[in-house]
Every structure is written in structure tokens, then in C-alpha cells.
């Protein structure tokens, strides 16, 4: 069945959803960035929208609000993640649910910071909320948990920030210091100009907060403030040297367990499942009856994250 998508957010993820929706048999009927929108009930032409954005700095002539007036089935919320009240993303979701539309989130804010509010709105609506893309990009983590059943999964741990992992694994492999590798990562586009979210562990923590919310199945609500978070700025090359001398390495590991959420640099054996290199991500699910499951892959990137968004859309058919 073809669904009509309204996409909010014209960054790497929103842009890729626009490009790839046709491949999944869906149409993007509305597309907005922070200042403009393009609406076409017959489906937008991706290259025309991208050209307009490049040429004029806008995606269309309408204002962003027009998206909500379009005739759509699924709102794809891919605006930048914000903390605290998770606005404006949360209001976007609220509005779509009030109109009994489905919502697919790539934005982590509403699910990490206001999970109970979000679930309450969903309960009042005919629409449902999906957010696979908010946790680990293309890796099917939430759908795996859903298949297993959250009560059968006792913990999730792993590496869910490619930038921090790239930096730590490069520092370990090349014997370079943090500042040097960060600059290299910025040149390669692996780290942003302001890398705070990634290197201070906030991005990873938001993902593990979302996992904790999913695993607790409504019993306990978690937000970023509940997480114990430490980033990688305080991991010098000397620590990686000492770890390597003993067959270990350091990775920024997140944990969502019955004890809560924790993200910190941890010592793990070299060559163990969690010691992924570069921008690779991995999540290890601890199950009650079936041991550990490891799922790894690309945890970020436009087409990768759009793949998770469109998988969520397909689940709504």
C-alpha cells in the first residue's frame, strides 16, 4: 500500500527520506525545512525540491505550517534533536497525533525526554508512533526488541555513537592524541564542528535512555537527567596505551539495565564483540532465555537512517 508522507526536517535524514520513499512505494506529499515547505498531493519530485533548496535556500513557496494541512498519512519528524521540552519536535508530533495521523520519529528528543507524554498522546490518537531511526540508524534494534518482547530483554549495552567510536579507535590504532583525531574526524565529516553532543556522550545517552524506556515497558520513565553520562574527552592516549598493553581497549559504552542508564568510557577486551572500529555501531541485547544477541551496522548517515524511517513506515501499512 502506498502511504503519503509529510517530512519535517530537510537535513541529511529528511532529504534521504525524500529521495528513497519512492523506492519503498511511498510518496512524499509535503516537505519542510525550518523556514519553508513544498506541498504536492500528487507527490513531490525529489530533485526539483533539492534544486530549489540549493538555488534559493528554501524547499518551496509555502510556510512550514502548511505541511499539517496537507493530506498525509504519516508524519516523518526529522528535525534536529532538542533536549528538555524537546520542542519544536514534540509539538509537531502532538499535532499529527491530534489529527489521528501516524508519526515516525528520527528526532530523539521527544522519545528520550518526554516518553510518557508521548505515549499518553498516542493512546488518545488513532495514530501510532514509531522511532526505530532514533536509535542506531539502520540497525534494527527496536524492531528486534519488539519481536523478542521487551519483558524478555533484560539489558541493552553497546556502542551507539560513531563519532566517539571513530575517535577512540583511531587514537588506539595510531597512537594519536584526542585533539589530533578530533580534527581529522571533522575534516572527514565524521565529527561536527561542535562535537559536544557526540564526544560528551549525550547522543549515546539519549539512545540508551530511549532503550531504557522501551525495555521498562512503561514501568519507569527515563530522561537524559536520569542517565549517568561521561564522554571521551578525558580518555588520553596514555590510557589507551595501558589498555592495549594488556590486550584491552577503551570504548564509549552505553548501558540500559534494571539499574538505569549509564554511558562511559569502559575497558573491554580487544577483539570482543563490542570493540567495533570506526563509525560502526553495535548493540548487545541480553535476553532472559536466549543469551546475548549482537546486532551491528551503520548507526548514522542520511540513507542509513532514512532506511530505518521507511522500515517504520512500512510497518504502518
Amino acid at each position: 500500500m502506498s502511504l503519503r508522507l509529510a517530512v519535517l526536517g530537510a537535513g541529511a535524514v529528511g532529504g534521504s527520506v525524500l529521495d528513497l520513499a519512492g523506492d519503498y512505494g511511498h510518496d512524499v506529499v509535503a516537505f519542510a525545512d525550518s523556514s519553508s515547505s513544498a506541498v504536492d498531493p500528487a507527490g513531490l519530485d525529489p530533485s526539483a525540491v533539492h534544486d530549489r533548496k540549493e538555488r534559493d535556500g528554501v524547499v518551496g513557496d509555502a510556510d512550514p505550517e502548511s505541511v499539517f494541512d496537507a493530506d498525509y498519512d504519516v508524519l516523518v519528524e526529522a528535525t534536529p534533536t532538542t533536549l528538555g521540552d524537546a520542542e519544536p519536535g514534540f509539538s509537531h508530533v502532538e499535532r499529527a497525533l491530534a489529527d489521528d495521523r501516524h508519526v515516525v520519529l528520527a528526532n530523539k528528543g521527544p522519545v528520550a525526554e518526554r516518553y510518557a507524554d508521548l505515549r499518553a498522546l498516542e493512546a488518545e490518537s488513532e495514530g501510532t508512533v514509531q522511532f526505530e531511526a532514533a536509535v542506531g540508524g539502520a540497525i534494527p534494534i527496536l524492531s528486534t526488541i519488539s519481536d523478542l518482547g521487551a519483558p524478555h530483554v533484560t539489558a541493552a549495552r553497546g556502542v551507539l555513537n560513531g563519532t566517539a567510536n571513530f575517535i577512540l579507535s583511531r587514537m588506539a590504532a595510531e597512537g594519536l592524541d584526542y585533539e589530533h583525531v578530533l580534527a581529522e574526524a571533522q575534516d572527514l565529516g565524521v565529527a561536527e564542528a561542535d562535537p559536544t553532543f557526540d564526544v560528551d556522550g549525550i547522543d549515546a545517552a539519549l539512545k540508551f535512555v530511549i532503550l531504557a524506556n522501551v525495555l521498562s515497558d512503561g514501568e519507569t520513565e527515563y530522561a537524559l537527567d536520569d542517565a549517568e553520562v561521561e564522554g571521551i574527552r578525558n580518555v588520553p592516549g596514555t590510557a589507551l596505551d595501558l589498555a592495549a598493553e594488556d590486550g584491552r581497549t577503551v570504548r564509549l559504552i552505553g548501558e540500559a539495565t534494571a539499574d538505569g542508564v549509564r554511558v562511559a568510557p569502559r575497558l573491554i577486551p580487544q577483539g570482543s564483540a563490542l570493540s567495533v572500529t570506526g563509525t560502526q555501531n553495535i548493540v548487545q541485547l541480553e535476553t532472559k532465555h536466549a543469551g546475548q544477541l549482537n546486532i551491528s551496522g551503520r548507526g548514522a548517515g542520511g540513507p542509513e537512517t532514512a532506511t530505518a524511517v521507511l522500515s517504520d513506515v512500512s510497518r504502518l501499512e
Binding site: 539489558a155 580518555v235 577503551v250 562511559a264 569502559r266 575497558l267 573491554i268 563490542l274
Partner: peptide, 12 residues
């Protein structure tokens, strides 16, 4: 000081 702790579980 900062501590880099071991990950006890799940690091096989």
C-alpha cells in the same frame, strides 16, 4: 581523577 572502569558483563 577520572576512572576508566572495566565492562564486566557482555564483553565476550
Amino acid at each position: 581523577l577520572h576512572v576508566v572502569e572495566p565492562l564486566a558483563e557482555g564483553s565476550q
